[in-house]
């Protein structure tokens, strides 16, 4: 997935910028596969590949923030300049507290989820089995199947370098129930003065 090398290079360039007194970079790249189903059909099946890089700088006891979704070669410099400009224009003193947690890398990939991300047919078949159960019960199946691959980098100029990559967020839910379409019932409108849900009779006018 996700252009790891380009992302690592950009984060490295930002952390070692040499212009700010302190720098924090948070980068998050995500590949999300989501299958939503309702009324016994898949109505939303999407793949989203997203990226967000945020840099926070402190310069002369002033803090500025800027963010981007681009990994273009000149983007690191442009992003840093924006953050520094924002810091320069800030009023009053504020400081950026940096954690000193050293270097730690976490890899928490789930083989099952990894496979599921790349297997469109398998995801659809899981949903199909839920729908089938719903239909057998003469009910409608509603729910979502979500599989996400994610990479997060948190680095700062105090030497903290935290990396996390994994595949998480698999949530499967189904809510089969019957008769939702008749939700607007007399019972649900108990106490409603004069408004009949399926009547073309106009209720009495509430004129002053």
């Amino acid at each position: 997935m996700m252009m790891s090398d380009a992302l690592n290079d950009m984060v490295e360039k930002l952390v070692k910028n040499g212009k700010a007194d302190k720098t924090l970079v948070v980068a998050q790249a995500e590949e999300n596969l989501l299958t939503r189903f309702a009324v016994n059909r898949i109505h939303q099946h999407v793949r989203q590949e997203t990226l967000k890089v945020t840099v926070v700088v402190e310069k002369n006891k002033k803090v500025g923030i800027a963010g981007t979704s681009s990994l273009k070669p000149d983007e690191a410099d442009a992003l840093l300049d924006k953050a520094l400009l924002n810091a320069e224009l800030s009023s009053g003193e504020s400081t950026l507290e940096l954690a000193e947690t050293g270097e730690q890398q976490f890899d928490m990939k789930s083989r099952f989820v990894e496979d599921l991300i790349d297997a469109h047919d398998e995801r659809a078949q899981i949903v199909a089995s839920i729908i089938e159960k719903g239909e057998k019960a003469q009910a409608d199946a509603f729910g979502v199947l979500n599989a996400t691959r994610e990479k997060v980098i948190i680095r700062n100029s105090a030497g903290t370098n935290l990396g996390w990559q994994g595949s998480v967020g698999l949530v499967t839910s189904s809510h089969p129930f019957k008769g939702w379409a008749s939700s607007f019932t007399e019972e649900s409108l108990r106490g409603c003065r004069g408004c009949s849900p399926v009547s073309a009779q106009r209720p009495p006018s509430p004129e002053a």
Partner: peptide
């Protein structure tokens, strides 16, 4: 139509009310 039932909810203004519900 029920497509948001699992998350955002449904609606009391169901199709049988279209053109009829005041």
């Amino acid at each position: 139509l029920g497509y948001e039932a699992s998350y955002a909810g449904t609606s009391f203004a169901t199709l049988d009310n279209l053109g009829k519900l005041y």
